[in-house]
Design a protein around this nucleic acid. Sequence first.
RNA 1: GGGGCGUUAGCUCAGCUGGUUAGAGCAGAGGACUCAUAAUCCUUUGGUCGCGGGUUCAAGUCCCGCACGCCCUACCA
Length: 536
Amino acid sequence: MFKHQTKYFTTPIFYVNDAPHIGHAYTEVAADVLVRWHRAAGVDTRFLTGTDEHGQKILRTAEANGASPKEWVDRLVAQEWRPMLENLNIANDDFIRTTDARHEAGVAKFLQRLYDKGYIYEGEFEALYCVGCEEFKPKSEIVQGAAEFTGHKVCAIHSKPLELLQEKNYFFKMSAFQDRLLELYERRPDFIQPASARNEVIAFVQQDLTDLSISRNTFNWGVPIPWDESHVTYVWFDALLNYITALEYSTSVVGDEPGSVALAKYWPAVHIVGKDILRFHAVIWPAMLMAAELAEPECVFAHGWLLVGGEKMSKSKLTGIAPHEITGTFGVDAFRYYFMRAINFGQDGSFSWEDIAARYQAELANGFGNLVSRVLAMNAKYFDAKQPESGDLTGADKQISELAARVTSLANEHITKYAIHEAIAVVWQLVDVLNGYITEQEPWQLAKDEAQRVRLATVLATATEGLRVLAQLLAPVIPEAAAKLWRSLGAVAVLGELSEQNIAAAGQWHKLPAGTPQEALPALFPRVEMAAGVKK
RNA sequence: GGGGCGUUAGCUCAGCUGGUUAGAGCAGAGGACUCAUAAUCCUUUGGUCGCGGGUUCAAGUCCCGCACGCCCUACCA
């Protein structure tokens, strides 16, 4: 089921100048769910995220705020980005900053290597440059300015005047890798996922690649080019390298150089990215790795956009939403659950306050939360808050245990294909069926007849085992609620910490010994007054 | 201009290599029950599968064209 011994997941590093919004949070949560699941399946899994801190745009905003660039990025990392990860319960192993010494050393080493191999050359470059985009603009994105910018050429995205830059630049010979890239896409159909993303990339690469300008010399906030310190590295070229510099690339084994084993152990990675930056990850990055004779990524998975009112969420249209707006109302687990469940991972998905409110109530509060409440309440009422001792299983009971096993197997299978939404949907079958099972078995009726004592115990033992399975299977998605449930079931004492459980074996039955004391548990997903959220 | 993706019940979406009366969840309607977060369970209303052709014994599911939406890319200028 999980074939790899090790797994390395990454998300893009955040451009610190941006304000965190639910798009960033979505990427992190998705990667985090995959990571937690793989870890729980016994795979040695590494999870990296971090921040992208170089470039002219950051330099300028720092200056505008009267700070040095380093002071500025330090502040944003500490006040915006790390808190976002903490708030979302992201369990990353590492947090790399492109201003880290280990990163800058790795970038320098990588550049020197490509230079020595002849993949970098000096050239002249003259083009219109947009500071906002951090890039030279293709003609398609250059438009005539309006209003105060009439007569100027402006960027189609930022509507601000472009600057004509003439530079001596260093170029990366990306064009040399066109055939090898196409061969890679052909040989490994899963390299770019989903298939729609793969199609786009192939079409793009078939149209001929141009070499990439990878240095700037008009400002100095960046990683110096090792052989020409009057230049700094282009921010994207710098940023992509974080995926290996975090694995101690600067001291690792490449060719015949001795060093760290982190790279050898974890590389190549599964890159989870938004589809807007797919090309950087599926074209430029593999070409860079080929040039350096490093393995290409295991996979580049492009997820979709969050649509608000049918349009891509954006700050400029005031549809940008900060994660804490949602977590503040519904909680972190609900945030994680909602985006993972409601959106097909890999496709665009609609977000609305009405939708999250409806799903919170129907699925988390009434479905799962209430299931937990009713089972624990009956255990407390009829069995003194202890795990009941199961008698012989009837057909109905066996259906539950069999479903638990089947659901465990299917969910794990879906995760290996990164189909997070499918995995959750499958697990949720157990939630729904358990609610039906309890209603049909009517334990409250059994309780009225002393002769049915064993049957009552069997029903509640079965339902409680079901909760135990759910705690394990849902732990990657809703870690806080799952941990509370695990503790409440008394499972910590008899089975150990939830994080130590093997998720691939969650479906095994009769794990909770009879008599295990349980603890009362307040509602996991209490009803939320929607008014405030819906009006928003 | 070239290309990609999408268009299925009020809403959000499933429908793999074409094959029984097109599905789910939510919302709506009716009923049952009381362990539980006025929760749960059962039943049920609801669709010309964007439009028009074609292939086939048979098409939501393949082919062609068109419309609309989003995206990538190019160019005229």
